[in-house]
Nucleic acid binder design. Structure first.
Lengths: 132, 132
DNA sequence: ACTTGACTTCGAGTGTGCTCGAAGTCCTAC
DNA sequence: GTAGGACTTCGAGCACACTCGAAGTCAAGT
């Protein structure tokens, strides 16, 4: 890298501290460390041992939060990133994992819709005590 | 009640044992006892101390399962049946509780839909590792 | 009479996903 | 040089909703 290469000095800071990531993603610093502990992340450190999240790390955090919003079990998310670590050959497996969970979510949403209809009905004809 | 009142001898058995209720509702006997312990049910007993669920009790179990399917916290369900116990004057409160949770569920479903869209997108253009 | 099996109470244990606190380190500003 | 604050690791603790097991009771069938 020479001083002529402007990309060597990007305008935005290339990495973020744990508190910055916590703020931006809504995931607490405690939880970010927890995720790392259980193998969902592998964040590089500065010379003092502090975490410096790269954009990819942050992207991964965001992706994890999506999967958690979909109630994907931590175990499955671990499995997913084990596959990522194992290389591109595992892409079909990863895809299958996502597709399988998507189906789980679809089923779940349908169950919610049905139970919601029942409660809607209860609300509509309110006056009851326990009847469905 | 006289012997002339046919409703004194209904054709179907008027009550069910815990195992029958478990089978019919899909809630385990262990969980049914748990629900009773925490005040969601108050099931009468036979002379030997065994639970005999009335149709109303069974209806209530079914209603509880609906609320649980909607992820209503046990605490709120307890509150609901405390209100039932407190008499008809609490109906507006009960209704409010149900309506509030319905809104919670709606919000939840919307969040699911959004997160699902994100994962759908990820699935569609699969090849990624962590990007959202 | 005795076995069988479903029931009873009670307290303790489990799994999931965080959440927290203690004790220590390290840079920055004064 | 020292105070402040953000960071570090580690292990323990928590909330929730069950889930289970031990020890005992009871009624019906053979």
């Amino acid at each position: 890298m020479t001083t002529l290469d402007v990309r060597d000095t990007p305008i935005t800071h290339p990495t973020e501290t744990i508190s910055e990531v916590a703020e931006r993603t809504g995931v607490t610093a405690h939880t970010l460390r927890y995720y790392e502990r259980i193998g969902l992340l592998d964040v590089p450190r500065d010379s003092a041992g502090r975490r410096l999240y790269t954009p990819d790390d942050v992207d991964r955090v965001v992706f994890i939060t999506r999967l958690r919003q979909l109630d994907m079990p931590i175990r499955d998310i671990q499995r997913y990133f084990e596959l990522v670590l194992a290389g591109p050959a595992t892409e079909p497996d990863r895809l299958a994992l996502l597709v399988k969970h998507r189906e789980t979510v679809r089923v779940r949403m349908e169950a919610l819709r049905i139970a919601l209809d029942v409660v809607d009905y209860k609300i509509a004809k309110y006056g009851g005590t326990a009847a469905p």
